[in-house]
Computed example of a mutant assay.
Amino acid sequence: MKRGLTPFNITALVFGFSFLYVPILLLIIYSFNESRLVTVWAGFSTKWYAEALSNEALMGAAWVTARVAFISACVATVLGTCAALALVRFTRFRGRFLFSGMIYAPLVMPEVITGLSLLLLFVAVGMDRGITTVILAHITFSMCFVAVVVQSRLLSIDPSMEEAAQDLGATPARAFFSVTLPIIAPAVAAGWMLAFTLSLDDLVIAQFNSGPGATTLPMKIFSQVRLGVTPEINAVCTLLVGVVTAGVIIASLTMKRQEVKRQRDLATSAA
């Protein structure tokens, strides 16, 4: 039986969305505040955006964050996709249970434990902390999210499609890139966006594994917030929210366009 929205459901939805998005909305509104006091509205102004963009320390941290997020997301997407393929296509091999457990462990591991363990590893191998260690740390905890997303898509694919391509003379690599990869491309793109967003947002793991010249934007914001929240911080956070929102919208539109194209191609081939 089809059930409509009840007053209880409407109340729960309003409360849930308000709890999630009202703080973000207030942050965006007060980023246009004329006053330096973030709790006192003194008029509309965009001067804090100009000051934030002219702040070399903040912009340097933003550039470091963008580089770390892009590189770690790309590497984590490749490694996570390979791990998902291994878990789905090779259902029986020695050490599979241990391998799957190691893939899923960062999902439930506290970030403090992950950051500290990686710090001890880098110290043990004599690696100086910097951008490289932050990138490696972000790859470690974000590739598991990519693996989960891609694995769920691979489980819904009929393996006979790739086998048919190999029967027609395609090598396993070409069958994967020509048949399987286009099908799982939306999941791969979603995994990349998830890894990119997690890297942009990370504070704890980066705090443990960063060094001189590797201060990320969340670390910079956290250090300044301890001295008091300013509209300049609100402006930077608003810009970050805008970048993430634009990326999600672009990725959603791209995946929707690819899905429509795939459905059109299937309809054309069936006709």
Score class of each variant (00 low, 15 high):
residue 7 P to Y: 10
residue 8 F to V: 15
residue 8 F to H: 12
residue 10 I to E: 13
residue 10 I to W: 12
residue 11 T to I: 13
residue 13 L to Y: 04
residue 13 L to T: 12
residue 15 F to S: 11
residue 17 F to E: 09
residue 22 V to S: 13
residue 23 P to E: 15
residue 23 P to K: 12
residue 25 L to R: 10
residue 27 L to G: 08
residue 28 I to Y: 01
residue 28 I to R: 10
residue 28 I to T: 13
residue 30 Y to W: 15
residue 30 Y to E: 12
residue 31 S to N: 04
residue 32 F to Y: 10
residue 32 F to L: 13
residue 36 R to I: 14
residue 37 L to K: 13
residue 40 V to E: 11
residue 41 W to G: 02
residue 43 G to W: 15
residue 44 F to E: 09
residue 45 S to H: 12
residue 45 S to E: 14
residue 47 K to A: 11
residue 48 W to E: 05
residue 48 W to C: 00
residue 48 W to P: 01
residue 50 A to H: 04
residue 50 A to W: 01
residue 54 S to M: 11
residue 54 S to Q: 10
residue 54 S to P: 01
residue 57 A to P: 00
residue 57 A to Y: 08
residue 62 A to E: 04
residue 65 T to L: 10
residue 65 T to D: 08
residue 66 A to L: 14
residue 67 R to I: 14
residue 68 V to I: 15
residue 70 F to K: 00
residue 75 V to G: 02
residue 76 A to L: 08
residue 78 V to L: 10
residue 82 C to F: 14
residue 84 A to C: 07
residue 85 L to F: 11
residue 85 L to E: 05
residue 86 A to T: 05
residue 87 L to P: 00
residue 88 V to H: 02
residue 91 T to D: 05
residue 92 R to G: 08
residue 92 R to K: 15
residue 95 G to N: 06
residue 96 R to C: 09
residue 97 F to C: 14
residue 97 F to N: 15
residue 101 G to T: 07
residue 101 G to N: 07
residue 110 P to S: 02
residue 112 V to T: 12
residue 114 T to G: 08
residue 118 L to M: 12
residue 118 L to A: 04
residue 122 F to W: 13
residue 122 F to C: 03
residue 125 V to G: 13
residue 125 V to M: 12
residue 126 G to L: 05
residue 129 R to H: 07
residue 137 A to C: 07
residue 139 I to K: 01
residue 141 F to M: 09
residue 141 F to S: 05
residue 144 C to S: 13
residue 144 C to E: 07
residue 144 C to T: 13
residue 145 F to W: 10
residue 147 A to L: 01
residue 151 Q to A: 04
residue 152 S to W: 03
residue 152 S to Y: 02
residue 157 I to F: 00
residue 161 M to N: 03
residue 163 E to K: 13
residue 164 A to K: 11
residue 164 A to H: 14
residue 168 L to N: 02
residue 168 L to E: 05
residue 168 L to Q: 07
residue 170 A to Y: 10
residue 175 A to D: 09
residue 178 S to D: 13
residue 180 T to I: 12
residue 182 P to R: 03
residue 183 I to K: 02
residue 184 I to V: 11
residue 184 I to A: 02
residue 187 A to Q: 01
residue 187 A to E: 04
residue 188 V to N: 01
residue 190 A to W: 04
residue 191 G to T: 12
residue 191 G to C: 08
residue 192 W to A: 11
residue 197 T to W: 04
residue 198 L to D: 09
residue 199 S to I: 13
residue 203 L to N: 03
residue 206 A to G: 11
residue 207 Q to A: 10
residue 207 Q to T: 11
residue 208 F to L: 07
residue 210 S to F: 15
residue 210 S to L: 06
residue 211 G to E: 05
residue 212 P to K: 12
residue 214 A to G: 09
residue 214 A to K: 09
residue 219 M to P: 03
residue 220 K to F: 10
residue 220 K to W: 04
residue 220 K to E: 09
residue 224 Q to P: 01
residue 226 R to T: 06
residue 227 L to P: 07
residue 231 P to D: 09
residue 235 A to P: 00
residue 237 C to G: 12
residue 239 L to W: 11
residue 240 L to P: 03
residue 240 L to D: 02
residue 241 V to R: 14
residue 243 V to N: 00
residue 244 V to H: 03
residue 245 T to R: 06
residue 249 I to M: 15
residue 252 S to P: 02
residue 254 T to D: 05
residue 256 K to P: 02
residue 258 Q to M: 14
residue 259 E to C: 04
residue 259 E to M: 10
residue 263 Q to I: 12
residue 264 R to T: 05
residue 264 R to H: 06
residue 265 D to L: 06
residue 268 T to H: 07
residue 269 S to N: 08
